[in-house]
Write a protein that binds this DNA or RNA. Sequence first.
DNA 1: CACGCAATGAACGAACTAGTACATGCTAGG
DNA 2: CCTAGCATGTACTAGTTCGTTCATTGCGTG
Lengths: 233, 233
Amino acid sequence: MAKASTKATAQPAPKVDKPKTSATAKPKTRTNDPDRTRANIIEVATHEFSEKGLSGARIDEIAERTQTSKRMIYYYFESKEGLYRAVIENSYRRIRSIEATLDLEHKPPLEALAQHVRFTFDYQLANPDFIRLVMVENIHHGAHVAQFSPEQLDSMGDISTLHSIIKRGIAEGVMRKDIDPVDLHMSISALCFFNVANRHTFSTIFKVDMATPAATAARRESVADTIVRSVTL
Amino acid sequence: MAKASTKATAQPAPKVDKPKTSATAKPKTRTNDPDRTRANIIEVATHEFSEKGLSGARIDEIAERTQTSKRMIYYYFESKEGLYRAVIENSYRRIRSIEATLDLEHKPPLEALAQHVRFTFDYQLANPDFIRLVMVENIHHGAHVAQFSPEQLDSMGDISTLHSIIKRGIAEGVMRKDIDPVDLHMSISALCFFNVANRHTFSTIFKVDMATPAATAARRESVADTIVRSVTL
DNA sequence: CACGCAATGAACGAACTAGTACATGCTAGG
DNA sequence: CCTAGCATGTACTAGTTCGTTCATTGCGTG
C-alpha cells in the first residue's frame, strides 16, 4: 500500500516542499498537508467506489486504506455522497486531460479515425476504474453527473477532434456527407466501453478470454474497422 | 436448499398447473402457493436489484413490496445473495425464451441481419431492468454468472441465429468470408447495450435526449447500418 | 381424521455503518 | 513568541440491515 507519490491527483496544488517542519523532521511529528490528504483520499475512494459501487463501498474501509482517518473524509468531503461526487468529477477530469494528446491532423482522415478509435480503445482498456465508475453512475441514473456545472459538462462532451476528422474526411471525399458526429462518437464509445465493462459476463458466457493480448489486438482492429466502414461512402 | 419448485418463476405467471391448492380457495384464508410466492418475490427483487444494485437493495424493502414477508425470502432463497442469484438466472432465462421468435430464414441475409439487429435493439430498450442487472453483475466481476451450470451458460451463449445468417450471407456472396460470429455478436451487443446502459450520462454530457422516439429510431437505423456495413465485402 | 411437513407471520437481535463530539497538534500572522 | 484558526486523531452514537427465533396455520396422506 505504499503510495508515496500521489501528489497532483486532486489538483495542481503546489505543495512543493515543507521546510517548516524542521527540515530534518523525522516521521515522528505530524505534518499537515491538506492537498496531499485530499488527493490520497480521492485516490483510495476511486478504487473503492469503482469496485463496489456507491452503496457497496464502506467509508471505514476507505479510511483504513488511507494515510489518514475517517474524520478527514468528513472534514473534506462532508458525506459519503460528497466524496463520491469528488471521485467522479476527478475521474472525468483526468480522462479529459490525457485525451487528445494525439497528433492526427496530418494523417489521412480514415487513418486518423482508425487511430482515434484505437487510442480510445486502449485508453478505456487501461482505465477500468473509470469505466466501472461510469457504470455505477448510470445505475444511479446519472444523478451525480447531472449536478456538474455547465462548463464541466461542456468540456466533458468535447469531441472536436472527431469533428475535425469528419470535416476533413468529407472535404477529401472519403466519408459520407451525412455523418452525425455525436452518433459516431456514441458508436465508438459503445464498442470500446463494452469491451471493458461487460468483459466478465461476456467471457463467461461465450467461453472466450477477452483479456489475452491476441484477443485484445483482434478486437481492437475489429472495432476500428467497423467504425471506419461505417463512415465510408 | 428449499429448491423445491423451479418451474414458473416470475412473469405473467398465470398460475398454471395448480390443482392442489383448492381451485376454489377464497381470499379469506391463507392459501399456500409457493410458486406464486416465489415468482412474486423474484419479480419485486428484480426491479430492486436492477435499480439499486446488490448492496444498495434492501431486503426489508423488497419484502414490503411483496405480497408476503421477509421470512419467505429467507425461506426460499436463504440469503440476499441467493435471491440475487435467482434474479439473475431468471432474467437470463426470460431473455432467452423470447429471443429468436423472429422469422429470418427466408429473407436476404443482409436484410435478415439488419432485422436481427433492430430486434435486439428494441428488445434491450424494452428491458432496461435486464440491462441494468447485467451492469450490476459486471461490477461484481460476473462472479454470480460464473456459478451457473454449463448447460445454462450454453443456452445463454446460443447465437445460432446469427451463425446461420452469416452462413447464408457468405454462401450467397454478400458477406465477407472471415466474419467471426462471436465478434460480430459482441459488436451488436455493444451498440445496443450502450444505448440503454449509458443513456443517462451520455444524454447529460452531450445534451441530447436519447429517449425521444425520433432519436431512438435514428439510432436504431444507425446501429443496424453500422453492423451491416461491417460484414459486407 | 389426525399427523407430519410445508408455508407463513411477527418480533427480535447482533453486527455494521454513516456521521459526530471532543480533544489536540500544527502553522502562520502579528 | 503567542494566539487564532486550520488540520487531525480518538472514541462514540444513533439508526440501519441482514438474518433468525419462536410460534401458527394450511395441506396432503396414510
